[in-house]
């Protein structure tokens, strides 16, 4: 769209662009930077994964340990994404549709996991649920396993992916304002009806967008999960942990094979993200245009 615009207004462009040599240099710098820092690492993953041929690659992926890691990763992602989805929508409603004091502070708290070191995200749960932690002894006495099992891994993942859905929705819902909802309410709709019939259709792409990013992070989390996993083979190793373990076992092909699955997931995420962003852009056009 913006391409068409700029094509049509080439006269304006003369005033708004740099001399050709400058343009070429800037493009060259940008492209080289992205190739070195982004493209090459991706290529390395796939090159290493297929370095012993497709047979070795497939056999690496059909290993039962790989499967158990994939299963665990999917399970943890499903738990954390669905919980954060529900929370994110609720939080976005409270924050975007109402004005109150301390909003910046609340948003900062929600954002906090973005900038907390993953290691700390794991550590806090060790301090709570570990044998030396506040609740650890009680949990152990009652035979409840949180750390080194699915609940601990899920908790650490939820912590790390906490902001994604809420952060995708808050600006969107703020922009859309409250007029439509107020109209629905004044026509006698209940709160839930208003949300499902009026708000949700407006934010559905935003919700998907948040879920997508949340999921990518949930499946890829390493540091936090590494602290709480216990590394039990075939049981509490997620895919990113298995990448490290196989790497340390000199099984480079297997390691990069798992890594390539995660890289593929990243690429699919990006494609889906690009598509969603187009939907979001369209959604933001003034209606009735």
């Amino acid at each position: 769209m913006s391409e068409l615009q700029s094509y049509l207004s080439s006269a304006r462009d003369d005033l708004r662009t740099e001399p050709r040599p400058v343009r070429i240099v800037i493009i060259a710098i940008a492209v080289i930077f992205l190739v070195v820092f982004v493209v090459l690492p991706l290529v390395v993953v796939f090159a290493q994964a297929f370095s012993k041929g497709i047979g070795a690659y497939l056999s690496a992926l059909s290993d039962p340990e790989a499967w158990s890691a994939i299963r665990l990763t999917l399970l943890v992602a499903a738990i954390s994404v669905s919980l954060n989805l529900v929370f994110g929508v609720i939080a976005a409603w409270a924050i975007a549709k109402f004005e109150f004091r301390g909003k910046t502070f609340l948003i900062s708290l929600i954002d906090l996991p973005f900038s907390v070191s993953p290691v700390i995200s794991g550590l806090v749960f060790v301090l709570l649920f570990g044998g030396q932690g506040y609740w650890g002894p009680w949990l152990q006495a009652h035979n409840i396993q949180v750390l080194f099992a699915v609940p601990g891994i899920a908790l650490a993942t939820i912590f790390v992916t906490f902001p994604f859905v809420a952060r995708a929705l808050i600006p969107l819902m703020q922009e859309q304002g409250t007029l439509e909802e107020e109209a629905a309410i004044s026509l006698g709709a209940s709160g839930l009806q208003t949300f499902f019939r009026v708000t949700l259709p407006n934010i559905k792409w935003g919700v998907l967008y948040g879920v997508l990013l949340c999921n990518a992070r949930a499946m890829g989390e390493f540091g936090a999960v590494s602290v709480v996993s216990g590394h039990i083979r075939g049981e509490t190793n997620t895919m990113p942990l298995l990448v490290e373990i196989l790497y340390n076992e000199y099984q480079f092909v297997s390691s990069f094979a798992i890594a390539s699955l995660l890289a593929m997931l990243a690429l699919i995420t990006l494609v889906a993200k690009t598509i969603l962003e187009q939907h979001l852009d369209e959604g933001q056009q003034p209606r009735g245009d």
Binding site: A30, V31, L34, F37, V38, V39, L40, P41, L42, V44, V45, Q48, P118, L213, A216, M219, G220, E221, F222, G223, M239, P240, L241, V243, E244, Y247, S255, F256, A259, L262, A263, L265, A266, L267, T269, L270, V271, K273, T274
Partner: peptide
């Protein structure tokens, strides 16, 4: 394409990025 891949570092798990950058 370049526009899309800017987000790779965000979507790529950090452990994968680590082994890839080290190999590179």
């Amino acid at each position: 394409i370049f526009d899309a891949i800017v987000d790779v570092p965000f979507a790529l798990p950090t452990a994968v990025a680590g082994v890839a950058l080290t190999s590179l």
